[in-house]
Structure formats: structure tokens, C-alpha cells
Nucleic acid binder design. Structure first.
Length: 648
RNA sequence: GCCGGUGUAGCUCAGUUGGUCAGAGCAUCUGAUUUGUAAUCAGACGGCCGGGGGUUCGAAUCCCUCCACCGGCUCCA
């Protein structure tokens, strides 16, 4: 007998070799029907794999991440089987589960498929799923597996096998489809009741740009038809929050092919929104000892040669422009840090002067690949809320923590709760990718890790994701349809100070190198606004929104009084408009609601006689009668409540 | 940059197999209406069917090419 410990710490005895499914059955028939896989001592297993020793066991259903993963991974196999049946001779790359579904990378050879073929494939998948094909695990020696795929002429699987350690390889067979696979899988295909192929895309084999491009088919599956329907509805809803759609509807920003790809035009309302955000951060930075600076949009190419950016990113910049007479080469500024280094160098510093914090809303231009451009989140010209902190080595951690405070404060003020934090370190196996000494890198990485620990923040560590000059800490937020974007970033840099020969005089009267911290809490104004739009679906916080109130006169008769109210509110710094069209009140309200304006000020005969206004709140309804002063106070109070979150 | 898809009025979309197929709603403008908490009525304006080239007696419709956009891949200082 072996002892099985369940998640609630209860323990049960089972015969040696008991399977996950048998454990589920012993608990309840219902669980046995719904269980998809089993986690044994932290590892997800097939339900029919015998457990031979004492173990902690968790039974995974659709409600568990692991259960979904098992379902989706098996669905990927099922899709492969369907595709192989429909398009014989297809070769297969990899087919994993992902956060929302699964994909399979395939090489169709002669065939091509498009989304028009999805229905056919889905039908085939369901047909195969209904056959209740068991997923059978087989273990064979690697050499045999290599042999099998070499004979089959399947270069991709041979590639994969060659990278595996010698020994036993596991295969899974379901129906006519056999795949090299670690598993785990469902017992059989029957739980897959609903499938939907979502999109098709090219994907380089092994993620290498120089390799062959395979066809990647994305899909998702569910144990119930209803769940698929709900998921598709959710996707539809998410699309309504898309910042590109809302940006156009609310007249926040636009693109014009005449201006150029990836070069956003901020419309008046978008510019107002952005200014409000900038003002907010400028206030915080002023309180935190930052000094504003301004630098030009172009700079001599040599500046970036010095910084090392030209060598590393010259290809990704817009190509140099030349002065007509001298032929001097200038680059559109791809980043602000070299400029700020020059500003630092303009003066001599004592150790007592540090840290020096230079801040600039600096607009930069980068040649992003055309296929990469995406709304406001990925553009070719954007403004960073950039600052560079020049400090002594002993100040790094403290300064780092202070920057984290600012970022966390901003996220709090804007109600961003759902963000993740990533520590990006150097790839230990690829030192050529980076500049600077090992010693400095170690120091910088240690400072970041300690600061994150001190703040008690949960962060993922990613090796190889560091900037070429130093490690960084990134704050990521998801967009409406689940794509992750980097917003705030803090980067420690021991290298640029070297390259620009930055110095300060220490207490020992010797020259020393300062350390640089690059930081941008919003990241870029463009991307931040994009994410903000999706976060609140265009219903911006009152203090940020470009249009705070609109006066709606009941009829033209009350135009004079309406204008008086308009002026009163605008003079009290409530951004107010007026709707003077000869429309019915219901229509004006409807339009104002659609425009997501927080307050509608309705004025008619009653209000004019009483010197009051009638207030309606967006999405809420009638708030009743106010005097203008009462309303102004009401608005100011609401704004204060939001913005006066404590900032340390 | 690569793979696949899309491109009809400011917006959302119709437009059968190439043959009165240049349309609708909203928006805009002009009238009428003077309106009380989510759509008043009528009329008008508006498109070289993304650009260019080709096939054809004839192209929004088929082909090529360029541009832009969408979904991914790669990249992201």
C-alpha cells in the first residue's frame, strides 16, 4: 500500500500502482468524470499512469490551470491528427498548450491552408474526438525514435530528438497520430467537446528567423459547447475595449499613411489626456527631486557610437541624415540617455551632489519592423517619460527603491491592479551580447534582486532579457485580449558612465564613477495611454478625462443660462463643453453617454429660475439638483479622493 | 522583415457566378421642430470601390505589384 496525500492534507491508502483516475473514482463518480489529469508531487501526469510510491496528489479538472493545459495539449494532438488526415504528408513541429488554448506548427508541404479551412478541420477534430481515441504512452529508446523519424523524413522531430538527452523517449499515440511528446494527455479524446480554430500565422522553426517558416494554427477547446460560446462572447467584448477602436471613436489619436506608418497623431482630446498624465508625473517627480531637462530630437551619430547604441542598434534606427555642407551625420534620437550623460558632463560633481536626477519627456524614433507596429503600443515615434539618475554606488539600492515607489504609486493612482513584474538578467551563456565587466553586472543584478525582495514584490526572473548595458526591472500589463506589454521600467547601468567618462569627486578627493539608473514609470506615453484606454474601456478617471462635463440646454431658450453655467465651470477648471444642437434632451443625453463624458449638466426653465443645474452622471443616472458651486465642490472632492492616494 | 488575411462614403457594413452595383444606417450639413434624463422628422452633401498595372467587349468583383491595416513569428536600447 502507498499513502496518497490530497491537497486538503487528508491522506488515504491505496494499492501500489494506483492511478489518478482510480483515486478520483474513490472520491466520487462526478470527479472521475471530470478529472483531466493528475499532479503527482508537483508533476502533471496522465490519469492512467501508475503511482508507485507515497505522493502528494492533486486531481486536475477544467477548473485547474493544469487541467486546461492537459485538455489543450491533447487538443493540439487531435488537431494534428485531423490535419494529417486531411492533408497527408504534413510534417509536424511542436504543438504545445498555451495560456488560452493551443497551437501546432506544421509544414504542409505542397498544401496551403487558410482560415477558410478551419471549419473543415474543426469538424474532423470533433469527429475524431467522438471516437474516444485513447492517448497511449509509449517509451522507446532515443535511437529507435531517431530511426523512426529519419525514415519518415520528418526533419523537425529529428531536430527535436537530437537535442534530447540519451535514454528513453516518450511517445503518445492517439488514433492514427503518433507524436514525440513528454505528455501528459487525457485518457482519451472524449472530453474534447467543443473546438474552435482561432488564427493562422507564420512561425519560424525553433524561433529562429533564419530557419524555415512553418504554419502555426491556433485553437482552443472546451469540455462543453456552452463554454466555447461564452469564450467567443468574451473575445467580442474584449475587442470593444481595443484602444485602436476607442481611440478613433473618442477622437484621441489617429494615424495617416501620409505621415507614415507607426507615427501617431495626437488629436486634441488625446493630447489633453496625455498632458494630464504628464502633469501628474511631473508633480510627483518635482516632489522627488528630479530636475527637468530638454534635449533636441537629433544628435550627432558619434554620440551613439560613444554610447554603444550605434553598434548595437544602428540597424534599428532611422538612417543618418547629413548636413548639406559638411556632410556631418545626425541620427533621429533613438534614446535620451546619451544626451543626459552629456548634460551630466557639463558640470563637475562632488559626492555630496549625488544623486542627480535628470528627467525629460523625450520623444524618440526607432525603426521598428513594419510587421511589428501595433496601434499606440508599438510605434516608430514615441515619448518616454524618461529620467536618468546618476548616483554613487552606495546609493543604487535606495534610489532603485524610490523609483519603485513612484511606479507603484502611479499604478495605484490609476487602479492598475493586474500587473506582473519581471527581473531581466543577463544570459549567463552569452557574454558577447553585453558590454561591461562581470563585476559590475553582478553588482547591478544583486541590487535589483535585493530591492525587489525588500519591497516584497513577486517577480519573475528572466535570464537573457537584460538590456545590453545592464539588468532591468519591468512592469508589465496585459491588454484587452491578453497580450502583455511592458510599461514601467527601471534599469541599472554601470556601463554608460564608463563610456561617457562620467565622474564625481569622492570624499577621498579622488575621481569616481557614478552609477546610472534609467527609469520610465509610464514607459512611453503612447503605450501607457493605449493600455490605460483598454484598462478603463475609455471611461477615464475624472481627473484625467479630456472632457469632464457637458452642458445640455433643454432648448434654445435656455442657451444664455447654459453658456453662463459653461463659463462658470470652465473658469473653475472643470473641462466643460456645451451641446447647443436643436435636439431633444434624450438625444443629447444619449450622445453624451456614448462619448463617455462623466457629467451631464441639464439646464431648462426650472434651473434657470432657481439658479441651479441638474446633474446626471455617466453610467449612473440623475443625481438631482445642484447649485453650480455645490457641483464644483462635488467634482473637486471626487478628484481629490482619487488623486490624493498617499505618496511617500 | 517573414507567413496568412483584409482594404467599398468620416464610422459600421451590403454589393449573387465579371454585365444600370456605386448602396444602406450612423455621422456631417440645411430646413422644420423648441424639446426634461439613452435616438424628432424631412432633405442634401459625401466614394477613381486603397494606389498603379494587366486580363476582358466589359472589373468593386479575376491576375500582378505597391501601400496601409489585422492576426501571429522574429525583434524591442
Amino acid at each position: 500500500m502507498i499513502r496518497i496525500t490530497l491537497p486538503d492534507n487528508s491522506q488515504k491508502e491505496f494499492p501500489q500502482g494506483v492511478t489518478g483516475l482510480e483515486i478520483a473514482k474513490s472520491i466520487s463518480e462526478g470527479l472521475a468524470r471530470n478529472v483531466l489529469s493528475v499532479t503527482v508531487n508537483g508533476e502533471v501526469w496522465d490519469l492512467d499512469r501508475p503511482i508507485t510510491e507515497d505522493a502528494r496528489v492533486k486531481l486536475n479538472t477544467w477548473n485547474d490551470k493544469e487541467g486546461k493545459a492537459t485538455m489543450w495539449h491533447s487538443s493540439a494532438h487531435l488537431m494534428a491528427e485531423a490535419i494529417e488526415a486531411l492533408y497527408p504528408g504534413t510534417k509536424f513541429g511542436i504543438g504545445p498548450d498555451v495560456e488560452n488554448g493551443f497551437y501546432y506548427d506544421i509544414d504542409l508541404g505542397e498544401h496551403t491552408i487558410s482560415s477558410n479551412d478551419f471549419e473543415k478541420i474543426e469538424k474532423k477534430m470533433l469527429e475524431l474526438a467522438r471516437q474516444k481515441q485513447p492517448f497511449e504512452r509509449k517509451e522507446i529508446p532515443k535511437s529507435e525514435a531517431l530511426d523512426y523519424y529519419t525514415r519518415k523524413g520528418d526533419q523537425y522531430k529529428v531536430d527535436l530528438l537530437q537535442d534530447l538527452e540519451d535514454g528513453t523517449i516518450s511517445f503518445y499515440e492517439s488514433g492514427s497520430f503518433t507524436d514525440l511528446c513528454r505528455g501528459p494527455h487525457l485518457i482519451d479524446t472524449s472530453p474534447i467537446k467543443a473546438v474552435k480554430l482561432l488564427s493562422i500565422a507564420g512561425a519560424y522553426w525553433r524561433g529562429d528567423e533564419n530557419s524555415k517558416q512553418l504554419t502555426r494554427v491556433y485553437g482552443i477547446s472546451f469540455p462543453k459547447q456552452k463554454q466555447l460560446k461564452e469564450y467567443l462572447q468574451m473575445l467580442e467584448e474584449a475587442k470593444k475595449r481595443d484602444h485602436r477602436k476607442i481611440g478613433r471613436e473618442m477622437e484621441l489619436f489617429a494615424f495617416s499613411p501620409n505621415v507614415g506608418q507607426g507615427l501617431p497623431l495626437w488629436l486634441p482630446k488625446g493630447a489633453q489626456l496625455r498632458e494630464n498624465l504628464e502633469k501628474f508625473l511631473k508633480d510627483v517627480q518635482r516632489k522627488s527631486g528630479y530636475l527637468p531637462v530638454i534635449t533636441p530630437h537629433i544628435a550627432n551619430k558619434n554620440l551613439y557610437v560613444t554610447s554603444g547604441h550605434y553598434e548595437k542598434y544602428g540597424q534599428d534606427s532611422f538612417q543618418p541624415i547629413q548636413t548639406p555642407a559638411e556632410g556631418e551625420e545626425f541620427l533621429l534620437k533613438p534614446m535620451n540617455c546619451p544626451h543626459h550623460c552629456e548634460i551630466y558632463n557639463n558640470k563637475q560633481y562632488s559626492y555630496k551632489d549625488l544623486p542627480v536626477r535628470l528627467a525629460e519627456f523625450g520623444t524618440v524614433y526607432r525603426y521598428e519592423q513594419s510587421g511589428e507596429l501595433h496601434g499606440l503600443t508599438r510605434v516608430r515615434g514615441f515619448t518616454q517619460d524618461d529620467a536618468h539618475i546618476f548616483c554613487r554606488p552606495d546609493q543604487v539600492k535606495e534610489e532603485f527603491l524610490k523609483v519603485m515607489d513612484i511606479i507603484l504609486y502611479i499604478f495605484k493612482a490609476l487602479d492598475f491592479k493586474d500587473y506582473s513584474v519581471q527581473i531581466s538578467l543577463r544570459d549567463p551563456d552569452n557574454h558577447e551580447k553585453y558590454i561591461g565587466t562581470d563585476e559590475n553586472w553582478d553588482k547591478a543584478e544583486k541590487a535589483i534582486i535585493e530591492a525587489v525582495e525588500e519591497k516584497g514584490i513577486e517577480a519573475e526572473v528572466e535570464l537573457g532579457e537584460a538590456a545590453f548595458y545592464g539588468p532591468k526591472l519591468d512592469f508589465m500589463v496585459k491588454d484587452a485580449i491578453g497580450r502583455k506589454w511592458q510599461l514601467g521600467t527601471i534599469q541599472v547601468d554601470y556601463n554608460l558612465p564608463d563610456r561617457f567618462d562620467l565622474e564625481y569627486t569622492g570624499s577621498d578627493n579622488q575621481k569616481h564613477r557614478p552609477v546610472m539608473i534609467h527609469r520610465a514609470p509610464f514607459g512611453s506615453m503612447e503605450r501607457f495611454v493605449a493600455v490605460l484606454i483598454e484598462h478603463c474601456a475609455g471611461n477615464f478617471p475624472l481627473w484625467l478625462t479630456p472632457e469632464q462635463a457637458i452642458v445640455l440646454p433643454i432648448s434654445e431658450k435656455f442657451e444664455k443660462y447654459a453658456k453662463k453655467v459653461l463659463n462658470l465651470l470652465n473658469n473653475s477648471e472643470i473641462r466643460t463643453l456645451i451641446d447647443e444642437r436643436s435636439e431633444k434632451t434624450g438625444k443629447k443625453i444619449r450622445d453624451a453617454e456614448t462619448r463617455k463624458i462623466p457629467f451631464m449638466i441639464i439646464v431648462g426653465e426650472k434651473e434657470e429660475n432657481e439658479g441651479t443645474i441638474s446633474v446626471r452622471k455617466h453610467g449612473v443616472g440623475d443625481l438631482g439638483s445642484f447649485t453650480p458651486d455645490e457641483f464644483i465642490e462635488f467634482v473637486n472632492k471626487e478628484i481629490k479622493e482619487i488623486t490624493e492616494i498617499e505618496y511617500l
